[in-house]
Design a protein around this nucleic acid. Structure first.
Length: 284
DNA sequence: ATGGCAGTACTATACTGA
C-alpha cells in the first residue's frame, strides 16, 4: 500500500500533471494540499475516471486539502472542529487545512500547515497557535486507537539536514526553534518522520522556491513529511521523494513524497517493488 | 535587507506562498 502527499499549488492548474502521475504511480492514497478551489468547483470526474474516490475541503484562492483513494474512505473528518469543539479549533477551521479519513483501518490525516510568513508577523503567531491546536487534536483522537499516518506540507524543516543553506536560514521562518518545538510536541511519543527511518543524510528536498533559480541550483527544503505511528513504522518498507516531478513544465514548487507500507499486515508483500523506478530519490 | 516566480481574484494590481 502506497500513501503519497503532494502540495500541488492549485489542483486545476496542475490537473494534467497530477493525473499523469497517478496513472504512472497508482498510489492507493494521494493527499493534496493547496488545491485552491471551492468544493463545488473541484475537478472530481477525472480522478473518478482513474478509479479514485475523493474527499475534499477547499476554499476560494487559498489553502484547500483533499484525499484521493482507490480504497474506500470511511469516517471522514474535516477541520480541527471535527474532533475539538473549543473556540480556537472553530476559529482555525475557517482556513481549509485539515482533512482525514480511515482507509483500510488506517487513520490518514492530511494537513496543510500555515506558512507563517515572517517571524514577527501575525501569520507566524497563527502558525504557532495552529500547531498547538494540532497537538490537542492528536491528543483527542488518540482514543480512536487506529494506526495513524499523518502527511502533508508542514512548512517546517525538522532539522538543519533539511535546509540547503542552514547557516543562512536556520532560525528563520520554517526553521525557528518555536516552530520546531511546537511540531515536536505534537509528534512526541506518537509519530515518527518515516523518511528519516531510511535516509539519515542531508540534501534531500521536497520544495524548491520558484524564484531565484532555486530548482536549477538545487536549493531546496524538505518540508513535506509523512509521519507514522509505531505499528505502521514497523510496516514501512521505504519512503521516496519524487524529485523529477519538480522538473516538469509548469510544475508545482513541491514534489510528491510516497511511503510504501506492508499493509494490511497479513497482505503478501509481492507488490512492494512496484514503486521503485528511476524517478525518485531516497532509499528503498 | 529585498526581490525573485506563480496562482488567484479581478481585470492592474494586490495578496499569498515559504
Amino acid at each position: 500500500m502506497q500513501i503519497a502527499t503532494w502540495n500541488v499549488n492549485s489542483v486545476r492548474s496542475r490537473l494534467e500533471q497530477v493525473l499523469a502521475w497517478l496513472e504512472r504511480q497508482r498510489p492507493e492514497v494521494l493527499c493534496l494540499q493547496e488545491t485552491k478551489v471551492e468544493d463545488g468547483s473541484f475537478p472530481l470526474e477525472p480522478f473518478t475516471a482513474l478509479g479514485y474516490s475523493a474527499v475534499i475541503s477547499g476554499q476560494k484562492a487559498y489553502n484547500g486539502v483533499a484525499i484521493l483513494s482507490l480504497l474506500p474512505l470511511e469516517d471522514v473528518r474535516i477541520g480541527f472542529d471535527a474532533v475539538l469543539s473549543d473556540g480556537p479549533a472553530l476559529a482555525l477551521a475557517e482556513q481549509k487545512r485539515v482533512i482525514s479519513a480511515r482507509i483500510e483501518g488506517v487513520r490518514v490525516l492530511n494537513l496543510y500547515v500555515p506558512n507563517g510568513s515572517a517571524l514577527r508577523s501575525e501569520k507566524y503567531a497563527y502558525k504557532l497557535e495552529w500547531l498547538a491546536c494540532l497537538r490537542r487534536y492528536l491528543d483527542a483522537q488518540d482514543a480512536d486507537a487506529d494506526p495513524l499516518c499523518m502527511v502533508g506540507d508542514f512548512n517546517i524543516a525538522l532539522d538543519d539536514r533539511d535546509i540547503h543553506d542552514p547557516e543562512r536560514l536556520s532560525g528563520g521562518i520554517m526553521a525557528s526553534d518555536a516552530e520546531r518545538q511546537a511540531l515536536g510536541q505534537a509528534l512526541e511519543g506518537r509519530l515518527s518522520d518515516v523518511f528519516r527511518l531510511f535516509e539519515p543524510e542531508r540534501g534531500h528536498w521536497s520544495w524548491w522556491d520558484y524564484r531565484s533559480g532555486a530548482w536549477d541550483r538545487d536549493s531546496g527544503w524538505r518540508i513535506d513529511h509523512i509521519y507514522l505511528s509505531e505499528e505502521l513504522q514497523e510496516r514501512a518498507t521505504g519512503c521516496l521523494i519524487h524529485k523529477a516531478v519538480r522538473g516538469n513544465d509548469k510544475p508545482s514548487d513541491h514534489a510528491p513524497v510516497v511511503v510504501q507500507l506492508q499493509w494490511p499486515p497479513d497482505a503478501d508483500a509481492d507488490d512492494d517493488d512496484a514503486y521503485n523506478d528511476d524517478n525518485e530519490e531516497g532509499l528503498e
